[in-house]
Design a protein around this nucleic acid. Sequence first.
RNA 1: GGGGCUAUCGUCUAACGGUUAGGACGCCAGGUUUUCAUCCUGGCAAUCGGGGUUCGAUUCCCCGUGGCCCUACCA
Length: 497
Amino acid sequence: MSLFGKQKTRTRFAPSPTGYLHIGGLRTALYEYIFAKQNQGTFVLRIEDTDQTREVEGAVGGLLKALKWAGLEADEGILLGNDGKVAEKGNFGPYTQSKRLKIYQKYAQELVNKGQAYYCFCTPARLEELKANQQTAGQLTHYDRECLKLTPDEIKGKLDNGERHVIRFQIPEGQEIKFQDEVKGEIKFNTTDIDDQIILKSDGFPTYHLASVVDDYSMKINYVIRGEEWLSSTPKHILLYQAFGWAVPQFAHLPLLLNSDKSKLSKRQGDVAVEDYRDHGYLPEALVNFVALLGWNPGTEKEIFSLAELIKVFDIKKVHKSGAVFNQEKLNWFNSEYLKKLNPGEFQKMARPYLEKNIKQVSPDLNLDKFFAIEQQRISRLSEVGEDLKFIFAADLNYQAEGLIWKKSAKATILKNLKSLIVELQKYDKPDWRAETLEKNIRDFIASNNLLNGEVLWPMRFALTGEEKSPTPFEVAEILGPEKTIKRLKEAIEKLK
RNA sequence: GGGGCUAUCGUCUAACGGUUAGGACGCCAGGUUUUCAUCCUGGCAAUCGGGGUUCGAUUCCCCGUGGCCCUACCA
């Protein structure tokens, strides 16, 4: 809050470019996006690439594409340019941490000068040994502040010698750090439990703690929404804000997304990359809708929400405190709902590539409009298109003749009915070859000949599909067209003889 | 081990301290259908345990217990 009125809300999503967009990251980004939008604020995207060892080539582009696919484009920071390449926009850049090293170094030095941080020359070996000893002694595994004893001259000497060093933030002892988390409520920590954090690594890169505090301050982020795994680090961050004399932002820590065994959602137990869901044919609207409802709901019984609706009804104060299991069954349900809502043209356009992947040969004389119309009602993921309807595309059907015989009806009856069915079907002109017309006429034919539905429709369907389960024979016939339909019926008769 | 967070059907969740604890997904049964899917109807299924406070506790407090996160020169 400034003296001159309410500050503009600024949220940020700050992923590390380590590979892909994690589904938990998607939800975090979603809430950050929504919160910014519902407050006429700005959603900033920053890249946190301070760990050079974990960096993955091309990950930033992938992250941005996944975010764009989900409809969560940043207003500022790192984003996709018009040419589809990674670009940057905004006045508080650079927005990539590896390009801000000088800034962090300056601030770390400022803390050293103020006596709130200190150089540490301890080797990893010493640190390891210290920790091991503390562990066996049952003590807190904190740094023992050996380097705090160094005199200014000793420090200068080591520095001049080019000794490897880090900068540690000196955590004051015996202080209670209290803050009001927007979702978790009042949180308290005692600083005695906190180790002297390394804020600047020996390679000159900052650690997360320094980088995120400096950046959130510099980029005027006043609303930090992030995963619960950061809750325990928040007192360190608050201490840093205080050391610099900066206003502490509002924090909101989101409950984690979990595997079905309640552990933190991880790759081992299924897909966690947004890109995987996209590739399997989940719609962004469905994924976003599903993920939005993991840990939050508006308190009504409505479950289907567009992004625009979410912006209207979302309330960060109603976000749950505990983790939510990522339940793919429910996601499938959402996806099938969204798939059904698509107009046929859109569905077909999206499903086509999957069909071509699933079926080697797609004969051009098939009525694919009808095929897609049926699949749209039956599948829950685009990757399933054609899976259960392979018989449509098969050159030959392989089935046992017995399958054609409905329940206990006689073989002779079936044979006779199939023959007259062919005669009946041969009457239709191609324009009439639609499921509705076929159904009406075939049902009339059945009734006027005093036949049973099953003794005509079962063998018809089986002759056309070779399967015990399928869409109606009328629909299958419409897709197949007159020639293929009659050909399959004739083949069935041959098999029965 | 230490610290923090957390706890309603299998899962996602609803319930100003007073409800037969509601809905959704999934599952099961019935109906519709030649079959499958859809659809319709119905059903199974939960307040972690123990103490308080209260006329009354899923709800507030405490203690357990479980789960999760942090405890890195990772984020």
